[in-house]
Design a protein around this nucleic acid. Structure first.
Lengths: 104, 104
DNA sequence: AACGCATATGCGGCAAGGCGCATATACAGT
DNA sequence: ACTGTATATGCGCCTTGCCGCATATGCGTT
């Protein structure tokens, strides 16, 4: 049945966005564009293995999709994400966005 | 400054709702009423120390408030919670609620 | 085929989190 | 004061999670 699988996904989503670095990566990818790991590494000041692993978690939670493009792997927001889960991500990113305005 | 403190709270909130038992407890308390630990224990089938600790995490995240009432401690939703954080909780609880309808 | 760049992953260490058990604390009733 | 009920917490165990390092893999260039 779907119910069980869904609850697991929900749990995965929450676990995924509970890490600051992953939230930051998600925020970058949430613009709808494609971003290679090297870009995310640079912008988030994260090591290669660390970044790669974090993206894996986001991917396995269903939040992002990845695509091979020559030597790069492009990550992008998953457009098929269930609306209820999109709502969660939007709420979280919005809550973080509230402050940075002050700085910017 | 407030910004740092807020980000920490945000992190606390996400950590708090990342646990299934805590989400369930939050859902119960989210009705606006007061609930003693014994009630939550019974309804969530959790041990006493486990329930008490989980509620402590929710309290420290600012999600709930507690009040002594004779031998009981009544927990309730925190009405002062920042709107941006309320939005997160609402989104999460709504996402979970989607399924239980099928069962009920 | 050899090299270089980009990404993924096995491994080990270390810190954080959840739980049960026992105990402490708070309060009410007798 | 003593007992019973309700809740909190110190402690130790065990699991999970994050990270760096080293290595493997995929792909393009020469």
């Amino acid at each position: 049945m779907r119910q069980g699988a869904y609850t697991v996904t929900m749990q995965h989503v929450l676990t995924a966005i509970s890490d600051p670095t992953r939230r930051a990566a998600l925020a970058l990818v949430w613009d709808g564009g494609e971003h290679c790991v090297c870009e995310l590494m640079a912008r988030l000041n994260a090591s290669q293995s660390r970044m790669s692993r974090h993206m894996k978690v986001l991917r396995e939670a269903g939040l992002v999709l990845d695509r091979r493009d020559a030597q790069w792997v492009r990550y992008r927001r998953n457009p098929q994400l269930a609306p209820a889960l999109v709502a969660i991500v939007d709420a979280v990113l919005a809550a973080e966005g509230v402050h940075e305005r002050k700085v910017a």
